[in-house]
Design a protein around this nucleic acid. Structure first.
Length: 125
RNA sequence: AGAUUAGCUUAGGCAAUCGCGAGAGUAAAAUUUCGAGGAAAGUCCGGACACCAUAAGGACAUAGUGCUGGGUAACCCCCAGGAACAUGCCUUUAAGGGCAUUGUGACGGAAAGUGGCACAGAAAAUAUACCGCCGUAAAAGGUAAGGGUGAAAAGGUGGGGUAAAAGCCCACCGCAGUGCUGGUAACAGCUCUGGCAGGCAAAACCCCGCUUGGUGCAAGACUAAAUAGGUAUUCUGAAGUAGGUCCUCUAUGCGUGAGGAGUUCAUCUCCCCACAGGAAUACGGGUAAGUUGCUUGAGCUUAGCAGUAAUGCUAUGCCUAGAUGAAUGAUUGCGUGAUACAGAAUCCGGCUUAUUGAGCUAAUCUCUCU
RNA sequence: CGGGGCGUAGCGCAGUCUGGUUAGCGCACUUGAUUUGGGAUCAAGGGGUCGUGAGUUCGAAUCCCACCGCCCCGA
């Protein structure tokens, strides 16, 4: 149920650009998301972490891991969406709780209707 | 015992839940094994490997490198040693000399050549003579002791000597050279000889010795769609339509070009030659895409031996990431000195830089005790 | 994986190849003059660890080495 396999990733440039063209975005302090409905029945994740966010590779890898982890835990509650996350601002382990809150806030529009009624995001964690 | 400096080692262990990459396993699951670093970094050197070029080697150019010996697959690397310098102490009238240091140590050639040395100073390299000194009636002449300039001025100190001076002479020191001794060598020591060559800089050009083909895993190898094009073979050249009309005839005519003939106002007509159309099949090249290269290697562990050491040899055991939108995280607990810097991308050997805490070694200093 | 360039005053640039004792230029800034006032103009002035650190040299922005930051290019 909480798996994160290769099928749940956006890999091709066409997939990315099709999401960008729709221009549906939400912005937060650390994160920015682009999203688009798909017909697959499950959500897919794309990540953009540039060298301008942080120069060191291990710090960028950490940010990617955190977002993948949150996606893994949250995506079963969503309708089928292609979602691309971009990092606005560099964050570390100390900011994890804040990042989690922001993640849930940004993605509340993607929730399925029935889960929205029964479970609040904070309980799901 | 503490502090400082320098160097070396180490980079964590166990457990729970949900997850990630690869292998094994299965019909599919279940299950199970392994899963970042000392710098993985910077990309500064050296290789392995692959392809291209040359196919015997040599010379030149370019770039790099430069005390001696050793290590290595190789090196702008490492180890050991030696000049030189620095710091401290001792000694000396001075020049200089000695000792210590886990300090530095890009250290071939300046007598192959070219060029440079601001300002100051008489003079900055062919030496020269400003103030001076001696000398003289005055010049000429002799001289470089002293003064002054500078980062640097043709050995230093003392004595003799002289008109005044000067290695002109002597002693000691420095310098250059012959010889001997020690050392594999760089070099060191001793003796003798020479009155002293001639400043600095080659991280100025340069000369000499040595090294040096190019491109890099996006190298390269294999499989190989769609579209377009290439080569070969075969088939087709139909229908429609055109030649004023009808009949017959013409199938390279309706496209192009060269040539010829006829008629003619002609942008007309005809003849002949060459090329050109369409379809199918096969072939090879090759793009996207995929597979491979891709991890067993100048490998690691332990022990012994050789060597001052770097390192080498022998034996024994081990297999330890291999992704490709690119794998280690989240929440906790136990416990600890446990954090920092930081994430493999073909692989090794170095160098450089970043860095927490703990431990070890050495030197120096301070305090206490004997 | 490989190659190239840049860093000098608040901003944009010279000077670096060939080392030399005031490190300049333009704009901006400050003060004064001019004007009723402002702008423009004229005159004077301030402002620099030459990206950082070591080295060569009597002397380094310049030469050598190592780092830091920024930009560009090729496969």
């Amino acid at each position: 149920m909480y798996a994160y396999t290769k099928e749940l990733r956006l890999n091709k440039a066409d997939d990315f650009s099709s999401v960008f063209i729709l221009r549906k975005t939400r912005n937060g302090q650390w994160l920015k998301i682009h999203y688009k409905v798909n017909d697959l029945g499950y959500s897919r994740l794309g990540l953009i972490v540039s060298k301008k966010n942080h120069k060191r590779a291990n710090k960028r890898n950490y940010m990617k891991r955190v977002i993948r982890e949150l996606f893994r835990l949250e995506q079963p509650k969503w309708n089928g969406f292609d979602v691309i996350f971009r990092i606005n601002k560099f964050f570390t382990q100390d900011d994890f709780v804040k990042i989690h809150e922001e993640f849930i806030k940004l993605t509340e529009k993607l929730l399925k209707l029935d889960t929205k009624e029964h479970i609040t995001p904070s309980e799901a964690v």
